[in-house]
Amino acid sequence: MAQVTRRPSAWAWVWLVIWAVFSWLPLVATLDFSLRARKGMLSLKAYQNIFADPGFYNSLAFSFQMALLTIVISIFLVVPTAYWVHLRLRRARPLVEFVTLLPFVVPAVVIAFGLIRWYCCPPFAFVSSPLLLVAGYVVLSLPYMYRAADTGLRAIDVCTLTEAAQSLGASNLQTFFLVILPNLRASILSGAFLTFAIVMGEFTLSSLLAWPAFGPYMQYVGVFKAYESAALAIISFALTWLVMLLMLWLVRGWAAARAVTAPR
């Protein structure tokens, strides 16, 4: 049967233009502003200033390290928990989902003060350790990482795959690492990307815990250097896209490696 192709209506174009203006105009304006550091001409001066500032590299490297640590710890904590909930605690799923949404309800500033209050003095004097910041990030990224893992687990028949592996002699750990985890690769990657984006832009926790992260650096630059601040926003945006493309490339590469025309 021939496919009927419908022409998009005029309204569709109107909404598309509104969406494009809403999404891209601020970005284009910021880009334009970032290029006007020299009076009367377009230049990359603001970008040169940013790239010449050691603070940029230091804060970027720090946040990058924190993001990687947060991702690793989040995966380590959240994915087995989500798996266990799917496998053995199905009734507790709504409760666990509610708990994972709490970081949306509790403001970051409350979490920061809570962490400082609880971990400021012995026997839990960790306030000067960057691991406390990572712990805070793990909490902040919990809804995203859990959702991502949960979506991946819903897409596979967790119980049957686990039972199949066990019937073949696999231990719980072998089942998790050889069967479940590889099938969650795409979900975990998307959760990792979201976590990365949150950590790279996070300001409240890192600022209140006094760490030289990328978020406070952007805020600092924004207060004193208008053009450099705009350039930093564009760099940050590009960085985020770069990571997203990297993730897409990884997922597609993995899918392409499996793609052969199926016989029917």
């Binding site: 039972e163 199949a164 019937s167 073949l168």
Partner: peptide, 20 residues
Amino acid sequence: QPPNRRRMGMVFQHYALFPN
């Protein structure tokens, strides 16, 4: 005895092949 020590091969209704 846990299932992974019984050496009983099982075939499931919906195959349960490992997709990866």
